[in-house]
Simulated assay, not measured.
Amino acid sequence: MQTRVTPFRPRRAGRLILLALGACLSAAPARAIDGGASASRGDALAQATVGIGTVTRPDDRYRLTRCSGVLIAADLVLTAAHCLNGDPVGAIVVFYRGSQAVSPVYTARTIARYSPDPGDLSAEAAGITLADLSLDLAVLRLSAPVRDRAPVPLASSPRRVPAALRMAGVGLSQRGVGRLRTARLVPLAASSTGLTIARAEGARVCLGDSGGPVVGQDRRGLFVWGVASAVITARAPCGNLVVVAPAAQVFGERAPGRLARSAE
């Protein structure tokens, strides 16, 4: 069945560069969300957001990929699959207290990868086409369950895009673990499969924020709408137009540990 885009406030983006948000050591230093707000200790989104570092060896050198992710079960983390490309030698996951990283550090392994169906998106919606988009999701299993953090459940349907979204990212730097920041997102366009293009309000999303959770909220609390999969920008490495890979259509009844919330 053909899917259609639900426009919010479409606008032309002009000449754009579409970038996957993951970074490696050979690239320029990764930066966290530029602008936005520092995460607070009592914020449920900040409590569940993680920094992810994966080590790969595509040739005779080791390389580090830096990304973000979100705790969706006691021992499971959702992130962008391109953060884990190249058959990683290993992966570590770091949690935060407020904007600062804290111990312990967990090791993790990839247990699932998904390529969500983007649906249809017209050329007028945010000035891009689906052929340009990077949409991927992956689930990591932690070396041990996390007991002092509350996982964030997944959206139960990809068809009801929240009017307001929020994302978090850590933008790991070359000097170590970066600071956790959050930003508000305004949806601009979305397909019926849940692919969403959103604009960051008063902030720009940068390298290292890939895989960062994008959440909505209802009377029951936060839910994961998807993860930041790419940024659309004319000036790398940051931009304020974010492509969100939807989580609900991939998981649902197939979710590990029945992660998706039941619909009301």
Rank of each mutant, 00 (worst) to 15 (best):
E201N: 08
V227A: 15
A245I: 06
R181Y: 08
A125I: 00
A126W: 02
G169T: 08
S134G: 13
D132V: 02
T193M: 09
A203I: 05
V139E: 08
L241F: 12
T233K: 01
V243D: 02
T233D: 10
G226M: 01
T182Q: 14
A168P: 12
A234I: 00
N240M: 00
A131V: 10
V242H: 10
R160P: 05
S173F: 08
E201M: 06
R160V: 13
V224D: 04
R184W: 09
S134K: 13
G127S: 03
P151N: 11
C238T: 14
A144V: 06
A234V: 00
S156I: 01
R204E: 15
E124G: 14
A131Y: 02
R184C: 11
L180V: 02
R179Y: 02
R166K: 07
M167G: 08
S173T: 15
A168E: 05
R159A: 14
G226F: 00
V244H: 01
S173V: 14
D148M: 09
L207M: 10
I128M: 02
T196Y: 07
A125P: 04
D148C: 09
L165N: 08
Q174W: 12
A228I: 12
E124N: 08
D132Y: 14
V243F: 07
D132N: 13
I197F: 12
A183M: 02
R220Y: 13
A155I: 11
T193I: 00
G171I: 03
V205L: 15
A228F: 05
G176N: 05
Q217Y: 03
V146S: 12
P237K: 10
A190M: 07
R179N: 06
M167I: 10
M167P: 08
R181M: 11
R204D: 10
V224F: 12
R141F: 11
L241W: 05
P153K: 06
L172S: 04
A163E: 13
G202M: 12
G239V: 09
R159S: 07
C206A: 10
T233N: 10
G176W: 03
D132W: 13
P187Y: 01
V177Y: 07
S173D: 07
I197H: 04
D132G: 15
G171V: 03
L121F: 02
L140K: 08
E201G: 07
R175C: 08
L133A: 15
G194I: 05
A123I: 07
P145N: 03
L172E: 09
V146N: 07
A138D: 09
L140S: 03
A163S: 13
D148P: 03
L207V: 11
S134F: 09
A234N: 08
R160K: 15
T193G: 09
A123N: 06
A125L: 02
L207A: 14
V215M: 01
G208S: 04
A125F: 06
V215N: 01
N240I: 06
S210P: 00
E201L: 14
A164R: 15
V215A: 09
